[in-house]
Amino acid sequence: MGSFSQIVVVGASLAGLRAAQTLREEGYTGELSLVGAEPHLPYNRPPLSKSVLTGDDDVALPGADDVDVHWRGGRRAVRLDTGGRTVALDDGTSLSYDGLVIATGVRPRRLPEEQMTLRGVHVLRTIDDATTLRRALATDPGRVVIIGGGFIGGEVASTVRHLGHQVTVVDAGAVPMDDTIGERAGRWLAVHHGKNGVELISGVRVVEVTGKDGRVSGVRLSDGRTVPADLVVAGMGVVPNTDWLNGSGVHVDDGVVTSAELFADGVSDVVAAGDVARWPHGLFGGELVRVEHWANANEQGAVAARNLLRGPGQAEPFDAVPALGTRVHGTRIQWAGLPRLADESSIVTGTPEDDKFSVAFTRDGVLVGAVAVNFPKEMIRLRKAIAAREQLAVTI
């Protein structure tokens, strides 16, 4: 720790804040800069698709307003020079470092610009996105089309339907969230959306968002249909914010590729954490994974900071079981591990018909993932089993 006097954290969401807080908690007393692309202090993102849309602006993260840092809000990193150990910002300034935390997160996939500029077309990633969407919903748009039935799309559909609007979700998959919660739970979720008044159109792609007089009017699908729309929310997934690392020598491949201890490949003074980090996970045979979960960012930011201070020789691998939960139309859905890695799956408790069940996912007989609907105690059990690499006989 004595070798560090200037540490820069690039990215001021949850992972970046946790890294900065942990550096101070571990006794680092040198210069500490926190660079955030948004002008706001670090805040909590999960409420953006839920309570913020209904009028609750409480997104505070504990300690965000009193962490001892040189705050660089409203500034983006545009270039990294690992040889000269500098981070260039978009205002022309440059920050020197002897330790760097990359926590730049992700950004939403966007429609072509001419479609994004239509009035009534929205994305949802920031607090400003959420308040803009809330104002649009307050004008009673009538027909809301959500592109993408994933995590964010499902939460927005649930919230907007609760507000009384007509909602259609268009999803390219056969069932919503099948890459996250698997086909069985995805089938249940499709039915659950329907029971709560959401029209789900599955297995088709959006070809174009159409407009009239500069305002959105519909969504044209790959099967030739056009769905009328007064408001569109594009929830088509995200991409890691790594453009600023081009030419830096940091290995980038669907995120910042790191060691198990979160050090950027071959660089002992740079670590990565949160949605942007892609690391070999010890519980899953060293499979490179990138996890877009709140809990992962929270835990990983702290571990990355501690490992940076300790150095590669004394660092600990990050092998926490990924886990997240959501509520869709009032129903609790949780998942843990990486169900997408499985070659077999089975319902192990409960039934989808009762809206209370759990699904186990295995690879070569070893538990790698779990999903629970309205079954938190079962999720606790299965998550512990994933951490213990238990074997479980399941059938597809």
Rank of each mutant, 00 (worst) to 15 (best):
I147G: 07
I147C: 06
I147V: 15
I147L: 15
G148M: 08
G148F: 03
G148Y: 00
G149Q: 02
G149M: 02
G149H: 01
G149L: 01
G149Y: 01
G150L: 06
F151G: 04
F151S: 00
F151R: 02
F151E: 07
F151N: 04
I152L: 14
I152G: 04
I152T: 13
I152F: 00
G153D: 05
G153Q: 05
G153T: 03
G153I: 01
G153R: 04
G154C: 11
G154Y: 03
G154I: 04
E155G: 03
E155L: 02
E155I: 01
V156F: 02
V156S: 07
V156I: 13
V156Q: 07
A157C: 11
S158F: 05
S158I: 12
S158G: 12
T159M: 01
T159H: 09
V160N: 12
V160L: 12
V160G: 13
R161T: 13
R161I: 07
H162A: 15
H162K: 14
H162D: 15
L163V: 12
L163A: 15
L163M: 15
G164F: 11
G164P: 14
G164Y: 03
H165E: 13
H165K: 08
Q166F: 02
Q166Y: 02
Q166K: 12
V167M: 05
V167Q: 11
T168S: 10
T168Y: 07
T168A: 08
V170S: 06
V170L: 00
D171K: 00
D171T: 13
A172Y: 00
A172P: 03
A172D: 00
G173W: 01
A174P: 11
A174E: 15
A174L: 13
A174W: 03
A174G: 14
V175I: 06
V175C: 01
V175Y: 00
P176H: 07
P176G: 08
P176D: 07
P176N: 03
M177P: 08
M177C: 09
M177W: 05
M177F: 04
D178C: 07
D178N: 11
D178H: 10
D178R: 13
T180Q: 14
T180M: 13
T180Y: 04
I181G: 10
G182C: 13
G182K: 08
E183L: 14
E183R: 14
R184Y: 10
